[in-house]
Amino acid sequence: MKNALTIYRKELRSYFVSPIAYLLLLMFALIFGFFFWNSLGYFVFIGMESQMRGQPMPMNINEQIIRPLLSNISVVGLFFIPMITMRLFAEEKRSGTIELLVTSPVRDIEVILGKWLAACSLYASMLLVTFLNFGFLFKYGNPDWKPLLIGYLGLLLQAGALLAVGTFISTLTKNQIIAGAATFAICLLLWVVGWVGDYETAMWATVLSYMSVVTHFESFAKGVLDTKDAVFYVALIFLGLFFTARSMESLRWRS
């Protein structure tokens, strides 16, 4: 696994020497900040209104700010995943450096793990920056921090699953744009398939809505660690990485 660490360090470094990482951090922080400000504003508005009516409503920061905020972010994440994974293998294939990796005494799985973990780390650092927002909540209010942490764990798991899918798609082409666009399409699809469950109750609809990566996030947003949902994400991670390994192997037979 020492080799995985070597690959991991190299990948993380190349994210952070190029503008990609900073651009993603900035955009994510901006969008997160906007959503935060928005839910906070709405929370304050509801509070004022209920006071004006003279009948105070139960107010809860966790339920009314953090939960909708995290739900929104779980969707926003879908738009950022392709930008993180698109270059992982496509770039190596285009520039020919894949030959170096494949002809070095390194196992495929070490290369894949190193790359995927680097992608996860970039996403994690994007999430880390957003903690700043919650600083205000803790300073002026007293939200419960445990559901918040579980929510973040959910965001990481969800991103890990989608990043594994994105890594797989990146092995299929030499073209970063194609890898990015295809990953984006798959991410969107994995979100919207859940919608059929809203009006259809047949077996196939249940299966489809079970496949939605956003539906499985609902329990995490509530601050509930549901094994069923965690297992879904972990299974998707394994599936994505397994297909990546297969694809990397077939690269040798095809090229």
Binding site: K2, I7, S14, V17, S95, T97, E99, S104
Partner: peptide
């Protein structure tokens, strides 16, 4: 085996020394 493919497998965003270190680590 040491292998130099037709297009040298280089990472443009790395410095020479750093790149050689990376490859050295990969080779054990």
């Amino acid at each position: 085996i040491g292998y130099l493919p037709e297009t040298p497998p280089l990472y443009p965003e790395m410095a020479t020394g750093e790149y050689l270190q990376f490859v050295g680590r990969l080779k054990g």
